[in-house]
């Protein structure tokens, strides 16, 4: 598989700040993977996300999107067409008064022909299961629905990669589930590269690859199954582990032999059943 995003010694210092927020990141992201970026507040994860489609430009080092340097002004439109971005607050990224008009905003900016825009808008809204709401006013939708409209707005531009910067932070558990299901499906079925920035461990369970960030560097890089069992290291980065791992970790300290890499609820239940199920 080919590399879609590459960072080379990426350093970023906010204006007026003394210490850099990102301290020389080297990162390669394969096309078609689902990457979760996990980190506590101030770890630099959002700053990293903003570099991936040229909202921020590195203080030093480079960010290459499909080989294009984001620091070059003439690449910016193509970069943003390749990597779409969904933000935390759904209210502040919806532009139009009607759901379908908002989804059309991106393709309209790209200068696509009206009939093709219509088709893309319908496809994108169907894909996030919001088609029947196409004529609604956005402010009457729930948080999860608004966020799915925002995702549709990006999908309609047909990006190869979608970066989501804490898309569930302002949502209730139902809305969070809707958004997660949607992005997982987009990755699995449509092969779109997904980069999910979050501080919820549970949201990382379905990812192919997990990047743990702390103090502007990448602390751990591997699959969630490899990383979550390293409970002590995760806690050292001021992060917890999913409830499933926490439960088995606690049991193991009481002398049981449970597999820490059983991170999904289903796997965890099966492991517990094997360990305790037949000892009545």
């Amino acid at each position: 598989m080919s590399t879609i995003i590459k960072t080379e010694k990426l350093v970023y210092t906010y204006e007026g700040a003394e210490a850099p927020t990102l301290r020389g990141l080297d990162l390669e992201i394969e096309e078609g993977t689902f990457v979760a970026v996990l980190g506590h507040n101030g770890s630099g994860k959002s700053t990293l996300a903003k570099h991936l489609n040229g909202i921020l430009i590195p203080t030093s080092g480079r960010v290459l999107v499909d080989g294009m340097d984001t620091a070059e002004e003439q690449n910016l439109l193509a970069v943003r067409h390749t990597v779409g971005m969904v933000f935390q607050n759904p209210d502040n990224q919806i532009v139009a008064n009607v759901v379908e008009d908002d989804v059309a905003f991106g393709p309209e900016n790209l200068g696509i022909e009206p009939r093709e825009i219509r088709r893309r808008v319908d496809d994108a809204l169907t894909s996030v299961q919001m088609y029947e709401y196409r004529n609604h006013a956005p402010h009457l939708l729930s948080g999860g629905q608004k966020q799915r409209v925002a995702i549709a707005g990006i999908l309609a531009m047909k990006p190869r990669c979608i970066v989501l910067d804490e898309p569930t932070a302002m949502l209730d558990p139902v809305g969070r589930g809707e958004v997660l299901d949607t992005i997982t499906r987009l990755n699995r079925q449509e092969g779109i590269t997904v980069i999910l920035v979050t501080h919820h461990m549970e949201e990382c369970i379905g990812a192919d690859r997990l990047l743990v960030m702390s103090e502007g560097s990448i602390l751990m890089d591997g699959s969630p199954r490899e990383l979550f069992p390293r409970v002590e290291e995760m806690e050292a980065a001021h992060l917890g582990v999913p409830d499933t791992t926490r439960l088995m970790y606690a049991l193991n300290r009481e002398g049981y032999q449970l597999p820490l890499e059983a991170i999904t609820t289903e796997e965890c239940a099966q492991a517990l059943l094997r360990a305790f199920g037949h000892k009545e």
Partner: peptide, 10 residues
Amino acid sequence: ELATAMESRC
């Protein structure tokens, strides 16, 4: 935030 989101959408 809206301005950033609009720019992100080309």
